[in-house]
Nucleic acid binder design. Structure first.
Lengths: 232, 232
DNA sequence: CGAGTCCTTGAAATGGATCAAACGCTGTGG
DNA sequence: CCACAGCGTTTGATCCATTTCAAGGACTCG
């Protein structure tokens, strides 16, 4: 399911791709001196999640934050009945499970599932609480995380839920490409996921995607990896 | 445009409908002693806004928070081109202009416009900053405000942008009814606004609304005031 | 191999868009 | 005070994107 990587060791902060790590980028820990930092990091673990694995589930007690380093995660909300909608996609730099920042007794209000291979750091509630107890002046960093989530929500509404299906799917592929690594190639979500994201039928999506491939907008580069060849 | 009401005076906190005021309800000030409170309140003004008046505009520097006491406000975002989408509706209890909580130098990232007669308290940036400087332990209250905005965003996506137009409009009327006072009657937004909110054409909206009226789901109670007669 | 699931493709039905015209409104100027 | 322009709503007719229904094909898994 998920395996612990070397990120837990003190060498963690020296790893080259830490530049992309939200934990540092958001300056959550940037202002802390080294001793506090390594103390903090002792309880932070780095994990890999296979596609389809849940990072957290709607309704479960919020016991950890996840800082996304690589990969794409869908935020899904069950509407009580059988089916669920995807509220938005999150990529590198996002922090998942913000309910945790409100303290104990909170629950996740949607389910976060890996869509591709995901590399994320798990920050336990206790570690977070300790940090905020010792350095409450960092609250603005937390607020900024919420703000960025809200922006993602607005972008999802504007991009994935407005206009014709072609545009909505194009927007989806664009953000997937944006979230991808340097190669810009990404694993295509299932028809069902694209359906839950854009609000269209899997059938309709299949047709438009076939069209994209025929037009050369979308090219398969290998094992379910695709590349967006934006001629626009 | 807007007029100042008696809320600025010290008697403000004694007004009966303060129970509904988000400023107190969200416990922003609840933990403060009376002296600090009245000091704070000195710079907080209560205003009324006519339908169509903007509380704040996209791109303008964020210099104040607005705590909505009564009425409905649309949050609108211009997509660069001519037309704008309504991201969501906000009702009593909501706090508008949260960018202000991030400090000076921030700008509002959407335009907030009154859809009905609006009663709101304006909390200047300085007053807020003073409060947070003296009582940084209240940061959780701020985070909760962001959380509730995010929930409104998710609800908008699920309710106003998913399913068939009938459902979307029904959801819209439902939240308008929920935001209304005890009488539950509300001023119906213009066709254009309903269009910008649901993503449908004014023409299509007109048809469905006519249907709602024919079926008796929606009844006109007076001067552009309507009442939802939910038979479902 | 058979069952299940998902993607694909076809044909028919439909919700909503689009085009277009008529009908109120409100404000303006003669 | 009336005429008229401007704007939003209503309503009808047509068109098209997407849904729905249905069947075939590719894949995984027990």
């Amino acid at each position: 399911m998920s395996r612990k990587a070397i990120c837990t060791s003190p060498e963690w902060q020296g790893r080259p791709d830490c530049v992309n790590c939200a934990v540092r980028k958001t300056v959550l820990f940037a202002a802390l001196d080294e001793s506090v930092l390594s103390d903090m990091l002792a309880s932070v673990g780095n994990y890999h999640y296979e596609p389809g694995v849940d990072l957290c589930r709607q309704g479960d007690p919020a016991t950890a934050l996840y800082s996304l380093r690589r990969g794409v995660v869908k935020l899904e909300m069950s509407d009580g009945n059988g089916d669920a909608s995807i509220l938005r996609l999150l990529g590198p730099g996002a922090v998942i499970g913000l309910e945790t920042t409100l303290g104990s007794g909170e629950v996740y209000h949607c389910t976060a599932t890996a869509l591709s291979m995901v590399d994320a750091c798990r920050i336990p509630l206790q570690a977070f609480q300790r940090l905020m107890r010792d350095h409450p002046e960092h609250y603005k960093v937390i607020v900024r995380l919420w703000k960025s989530h809200l922006e993602a929500a607005d972008e999802a509404l504007l991009g994935f839920r407005s206009g014709e299906l072609r545009e909505r799917l194009a927007a989806t592929l664009n953000t997937l490409s944006r979230f991808a690594g340097d190669s810009k190639s990404f694993t295509l979500p299932s028809g069902r996921d694209l359906s839950a994201l854009t609000g269209a039928t899997p059938v309709a999506i299949s047709r438009v995607m076939a069209d994209f491939k025929r037009q050369g907008v979308l090219r398969e580069t290998g094992d379910k990896e695709f590349l967006l060849h934006d001629g626009e």
